[in-house]
C-alpha cells in the first residue's frame, strides 16, 4: 500500500460527515467517514482544516471522542467568540465534507496494557478524550477500575450524560456542578478542590494513573492538588484545551 510507505507523515484528506448529534445546547458530536484512516488510540486528537469560499483557511485541533475500534468522531463545543467551532456546531450537516489529518499525540493516551486504577478528571468539554478512554476500556473488555470526576457549570451542560450514567461495575462516575444545581441534586457542588479530590481519588498507594483535561486553570488546580495528595507527577497526564 502506498500509505504504508509514507507512514509517519500525516497527510490531509477529505472526510465526509456521516452524522451530527446534539449533546447539549452548545455541543455537537460529529461522526466522520475517513477513507484512509490509519486507526487511533483513545485520548489522541486530530486536526481539522476549513476552507472558506474566498480561499481563507483555518485549522484547529480536536480530541477524538471514540474508542480505538470505532469510527472517528469529534465532540465540539461552540465558543461564541470562536471562528471554527460555530461553523462545526451550527452549520455542518451530514454529507458535508471537510479536511482533516491525524491521529496526533502519543502521550495523553490510554490502552488496556497501561493498567490503572484510572482516575479521570474532566472540566467541561475536557471530558471528550476521557470519554474515549472509558469507551475503549469497555469495548476492550478491560477490568481496570476507573473513576471519572466530571466538573460542569450546570447539569444542562453535562456532555454524554446518559451514556456516562450507564456505566456499572468497575466504573464510577461523579459529577460536580459549579454554577447551579437543580432541586434534589445529589451529586457534588462547587469546584474540584483538594477536599473533593481527597474524597474521589484513589489512594496514592494504589499507584493510580491519572488523566486530567479541561481549561488551564482547572488543570493547574487539579494536577497540583493530586501531587499534594502524594501522586507522583509522572503518573498525572494533563491536557489543556483552548483555541477557538
Amino acid at each position: 500500500m502506498a500509505t504504508a510507505a509514507v507512514r509517519g507523515r500525516l497527510t490531509w484528506q477529505t472526510a465526509t460527515v456521516t452524522s451530527v448529534m446534539r449533546e447539549t445546547d452548545a455541543v455537537r458530536t460529529i461522526e466522520l467517514e475517513v477513507p484512509d484512516w490509519p486507526g487511533h488510540h483513545a485520548g489522541q486528537h486530530l486536526d481539522v482544516r476549513l476552507t472558506a469560499e474566498d480561499g481563507y483557511t483555518a485549522e484547529r485541533s480536536y480530541s477524538i471522542a471514540t474508542a480505538d475500534d470505532e469510527p472517528v468522531a469529534i465532540t465540539v463545543e461552540r465558543l461564541d467568540d470562536g471562528e471554527v467551532s460555530p461553523y462545526l456546531t451550527e452549520e455542518l450537516h451530514a454529507g458535508d465534507q471537510l479536511e482533516l489529518r491525524g491521529p496526533i499525540g502519543g502521550w495523553f493516551v490510554w490502552d488496556t496494557s497501561d493498567g490503572g486504577p484510572l482516575l479521570l478528571v474532566a472540566g467541561g468539554s475536557g471530558v471528550v478524550p476521557l470519554r474515549a478512554i472509558l469507551r475503549h476500556r469497555q469495548r476492550a473488555g478491560s477490568d481496570v477500575p476507573a473513576r471519572l470526576l466530571y466538573s460542569s457549570r450546570t447539569l444542562a451542560e453535562v456532555i454524554y450524560h446518559s451514556e456516562l450514567d450507564q456505566y456499572r461495575g468497575g466504573v464510577a462516575v461523579s459529577y460536580t456542578l459549579t454554577r447551579s444545581q437543580p432541586p434534589g441534586w445529589t451529586g457534588y457542588s462547587g469546584r474540584v478542590d483538594a477536599a473533593l479530590l481527597a474524597k474521589i481519588a484513589w489512594p496514592a498507594s494504589e499507584h493510580p494513573l491519572v488523566f486530567v483535561c479541561g481549561p488551564t486553570s482547572f488543570v493547574e488546580a487539579v494536577a497540583g492538588n493530586l501531587v499534594a495528595l502524594g501522586y507522583p507527577a509522572g503518573r498525572v497526564k494533563t491536557e489543556r484545551f483552548g483555541g477557538a
Partner: peptide, 14 residues
C-alpha cells in the same frame, strides 16, 4: 481543490 465550507464565517485576515 479542498472542499469549501459554505457558511464558514471566518474572522479577518491578519
Amino acid at each position: 481543490s479542498p472542499p469549501v465550507s459554505r457558511g464558514f464565517r471566518h474572522f479577518r485576515r491578519p
